Amino acid sequence: MTSGNGHRSGRRPGHSGTREAILDAARVRFAQVGFDRASIRSIATAASVDPALVHHYFGTKQQLFTAALEFPVDPDVILTQIAAVPLEQLGETIVRAVLTVWDSPAGVQAVAAFRTLIGSGDPALVRTFLLDVVLKDVRTRVDSPPGSGDKRAVLAASQLAGLLVTRKIIQIEPIASMSIAELAVSVGPTVQRYLTGDLPISY
C-alpha cells in the first residue's frame, strides 16, 4: 500500500517476502544487542518496513522474538508460573515449568529450534532467550547481595541447559525417563541454591 506521494505506508499483508525480511532483521538485531535494546523501530528500519507492519505481523516484541527463534511456545507460559511463586520456591518452579514445556507436544519443535540455534555456531539468540526473557525478572528478584543477580541467573541457566542436553538431546538415563515431578524435586534445590543460597560470587 502506498500513499499519494509514492512512499510506502500502512500494512502490506499481501507481500510474500515482508514477514521473512522482518524475521531476518529481528534475528540479527536480537543477536547483536539483546532483547531489551532491540527496538521494534530499529528492526523495522533494518527490514525496510514501517514499524506498524512489524506489529501487524507479530504483535509485541516478545512475540516477534518467539517467532524469530521459531520457538513454538509463548514464553509467557513459563514466565507466568515463575512470577506467581515466592522466592524460596523459584528453583523447583523453574525446573518444573521448563520441563513441562519440553515434554509437551510442542516440546519437540522447541528442542529442535534450540538444537538448530546452537548448531549454527552463533549462540547469541539462545543466551538472549534464557537471560533476557525467561530469567530477566528472576535476575532482579535474586539480586542479593546487590550486583549478584546476573551471575546467579547465569548459574541457573547453566543447570537448565545441561538438563536440556542430558534429557532431550543425548537422552542419558535415568534423566531421560524420570518424571517431571522427580526431576523438579531433584534438580530444583540446586537451581534454588544458585539463585538464593550463599555462593562464593565476586562481582
Rank of each mutant, 00 (worst) to 15 (best):
T93D: 04
T45D: 11
I40P: 02
A106P: 02
L195R: 03
V111P: 06
R193S: 01
S158Y: 01
E70A: 10
F65R: 05
E182F: 03
V138M: 02
F35H: 12
P75V: 02
E173T: 14
R127W: 01
G121C: 05
Y203W: 00
A68K: 10
D143V: 00
T18D: 14
V134Q: 04
V142I: 03
V95E: 01
V28M: 11
L79M: 14
D103L: 12
F71H: 11
I180E: 04
G147K: 01
E92I: 03
A97V: 11
G17C: 12
P189E: 04
A161V: 10
K151R: 15
S120A: 09
G107C: 08
T116P: 00
L163P: 08
F114W: 13
D36R: 15
A112S: 07
A156C: 09
A21R: 14
T128E: 08
I43D: 07
L130V: 07
I175K: 06
V28K: 15
V54D: 09
A184L: 06
S3H: 08
I82M: 04
Q63P: 03
E173G: 05
Y57L: 13
I40H: 05
Q32G: 11
T140C: 01
T66Q: 06
V142K: 00
S148Q: 13
Q109M: 06
E20M: 05
R115W: 10
A181F: 05
A161E: 06
E173L: 08
R96K: 11
F35D: 03
R27M: 04
F65D: 04
I40G: 07
V108E: 12
